[in-house]
Design a protein around this nucleic acid. Structure first.
Lengths: 201, 201
DNA sequence: CCTTAAACGTTGATTAACGTACATCCGAAT
DNA sequence: ATTCGGATGTACGTTAATCAACGTTTAAGG
């Protein structure tokens, strides 16, 4: 049985309205009346799906995180043969994701709402890095959990700077920058190559 | 009693879908299945409001013409005393209208569909010019009907060139161009000067 | 020719969204 | 302290849109 597309449309409209309103004013001051007016929906429609503004916001955040995870995993699911440089393909999907939700990320970065969101998204990034980028020959001197956290927050820092700078680069350029940073900072060039190749299955 | 906004939304989605499809292929080859898929609507919704693709297209054309008329009249409705100098304010609204429906006009211009539409829109323009721009002192040597037709098609030519050139100018620039053309082509410079000054007051 | 897939047009049952109304609640201005 | 306008939460009956399914028509290919 398929899902009723009316529900998706209404929810989308409500989230889009919330984003638009958050670009202009504090979340706390946004009323449900404003949201349904901006979404061009009846007030009862809001209460059919949510109780409060916060609930709507939470689902929006969930959407972002789910899309982030899907974006990260997308390159891995259909890769058959190995190609060097597929790390680029993987990371560019992340930046594509940020671009897709650019308005949301801009709100996050340029305001102090959602202080917990940054940690939350980094936690997701960390888990992704941990699961998908398991090193075949782990360095015995490095704790894997520390390493993935290190990489996750580093990537997040890249994103923050990109958003703050009002998306002056394309997502492809951002991916290239990431590759360059990784190459430059790692002393053993051949280790990088192995690292890249192993990522691809 | 207010109108049901679901109807408007569905019709809007269908028209938007039709425009998108007409940007890519011939109108004749567009199926209802494609339309409802692009509009993300159930196929029964289409048949609730229309019988054929042509009927949908006709209503879209009506929308454009109605918006054109409204755009043209908007500056006049709130003007109490009649001022000839409001031509600038009036004409910029026309170009705003074209910009609002830029995708539609681009389709019209860049394809051979709707050969009758150009005459139809010029007819509307002519009537508007005739009704709203009645000269206080008509030139006895000029037929009013001929004059309004002349002006209507001239304005349309301006629009065609604007659209063909991929909207290289702003609507305000287009309005200014129109004023300049009128000024240059009219022998009585002092009348024009008065004309212009009235616009700026 | 025949087959097959896609588009067509319609139907019936279900439900999400609608307009409207009402009784609160609350903050701000009087 | 009181008024008052806006927001809230809820409820009702109506209806547009939904999904699923159906038989038919059309057109392209074997």
């Amino acid at each position: 049985m398929k899902k009723d597309r009316r529900i998706d449309k209404s929810k989308m409209a409500l989230k889009e309205a919330l984003i638009s309103l958050m670009e202009e004013k504090e979340f706390k001051s946004i009323t449900i009346t404003e949201i349904v007016h901006s979404a061009n929906l009846n007030r009862g429609t809001f209460y059919k799906h949510y109780q409060t503004q916060g609930e709507l916001l939470n689902e929006l955040i969930d959407d972002v995180l789910i899309d982030l995870i899907h974006s990260y995993r997308e390159p891995y699911v259909k890769i058959k043969n190995f190609e060097v440089g597929k790390l680029s393909a993987a990371s560019v999907k992340i930046f594509d994701h940020v671009e897709r939700y650019s308005r949301f990320y801009t709100i996050i970065v340029n305001s102090n709402v959602l202080p917990g969101f940054q940690n939350r998204i980094c936690q997701v990034l960390k888990e992704l890095v941990q699961k998908e980028l398991i090193s075949p020959m782990p360095n015995p001197g490095i704790d894997p959990s520390l390493l993935s956290s290190y990489n996750a927050y580093a990537l997040f820092g890249l994103i923050i700077e990109w958003v703050s700078g009002d998306f002056k680069f394309t997502s492809q350029q951002m991916a290239d920058q990431l590759i360059n940073i990784l190459s430059y900072q790692t002393p053993k060039a051949e280790a990088i190559t192995v690292f890249k190749e192993k990522n691809l299955h």
